[in-house]
């Protein structure tokens, strides 16, 4: 049984301009010890999906199962009981830590909410701070005394305090410098290897996701357009949007960067309040045809391992040929 299962999840917001379907019909599963990468551009609904799984925004449609238990509509005491199992690491380590509380109190707060004794909290906090390689006296200090990378470690210690089963990492390294980013990614991987925790890893940065994810989901305007084993999706993308994202991501290799053919998408994300008819991507898709405006493409199997794609056409071979041409030059 998967750790987390979502079936046709929908999150809606009422806005002055109409109903915004931030997440529409998203199904996913995360196993213990596994990382599901979630990528897409600003406004695609990836953070909202993470918050829905945290039960921080109301779920309008679908069901959410945690270890087989339906938590879609849990409230009050029964919701509080499952909360420790799902925790979150936020993007901005500055604004996600209360500047007026000491680090010990920040990391210990989930424990005190869960009713731990003061002595147990102090012991656990010391243990957690050691695990994230912060100095012993860190508990007595305030967040502003730490660098960005250290603050993100404090956020991770807090998220892991109650030994959660699942951690939602929402852009956990986007605000960090390159060298520190690697430290934090390695730390998250170490915890996963040791504790078997599952991650939903939300990021706009494909190179980071590629390094951490076992499986991958690509979202566009609230919908999943492609998913599958990370390797399959990244090496053999089947959706034109995935292909464009991969093509747009800068490669830290000057020869490869010069050699490859880039697909630069024209235009920008349409309004999610008033999405295009049919395929949501068709207004920016270089391959769109009449059918794309008429019919919503459903997720269907693609050639790769567990790969699903929501596109009327089959581009896998074509994209693969283009990718091979580019890597051939680098070899």
């Amino acid at each position: 049984m998967p750790l987390l299962q979502a079936h046709s999840l929908g999150v809606h917001f009422a806005t002055p301009r109409g109903l915004l379907r931030a997440v529409a019909g998203v199904s996913l599963a995360i196993e213990a010890g596994e990382t599901l990468g979630l990528v897409g551009e600003s406004g695609c609904g990836k953070s909202t999906l993470g918050r829905a799984i945290m039960r921080l925004v109301p779920i309008a449609e679908g069901t959410l199962l945690l270890e087989g238990q339906d938590i879609t509509r849990l409230e009050g005491a029964s919701l509080k009981q499952v909360r420790p199992k799902v925790q979150m690491v936020f993007q901005d380590p500055v604004s996600s830590l209360n500047p007026r509380r000491r680090v010990g109190s920040l990391v210990g707060q989930p424990l005190s909410v869960a009713g731990w004794s003061r002595r147990d909290i102090a012991d656990r906090v010391a243990e957690l701070l050691a695990q994230v390689s912060l100095p012993r006296d860190a508990a007595e200090r305030f967040p502003h005394e730490f660098s960005g990378g250290q603050r993100q470690r404090i956020g991770i210690a807090r998220a892991l305090a109650l030994s959660p089963k699942l951690v939602i990492c929402d852009e956990p390294v986007s605000a960090l410098d390159v060298s520190v980013r690697a430290q934090v990614i390695n730390l998250l991987k170490d915890f996963q290897d040791r504790l078997g925790v599952g991650y939903l890893f939300i990021s706009h940065d494909l190179s980071v996701v590629e390094n951490v994810a076992d499986r991958l989901m690509v979202m566009y305007l609230g919908r999943v357009v492609e998913q599958g084993a990370a390797e399959a999706v990244l090496r053999r993308p089947a959706h034109p949007y995935t292909h464009a994202l991969l093509s747009a991501a800068p490669v830290a290799n000057p020869r490869l960067a010069r050699a490859r053919q880039r697909v630069v998408l024209q235009g920008e994300l349409p309004s999610p309040v008033n999405p295009p008819s049919g395929c949501p991507f068709r207004t920016r898709c270089p391959f769109a045809e009449a059918r794309c405006a008429a019919e919503v493409p459903l997720l269907r199997p693609a050639p790769g391992d567990g790969q699903l794609v929501a596109c009327h056409f089959d581009f896998t071979e074509r994209f693969a040929a283009a990718a091979d041409a580019a890597t051939g030059v680098s070899a």
């Binding site: 250290q150 410098d177 060298s179 430290q183 190179s207 980071v208 590629e210």
Partner: peptide, 26 residues
């Protein structure tokens, strides 16, 4: 070298490749 090693470059490394980090901070 540290900066280049710490940059996830995909390609050959991929999943479970440990990123080279630079200890400490600026």
């Amino acid at each position: 070298r540290g900066l280049i090693g710490a940059t996830p470059s995909g390609g050959t490394a991929g999943r479970h490749a440990r990123l080279a980090d630079i200890p400490g901070s600026v």
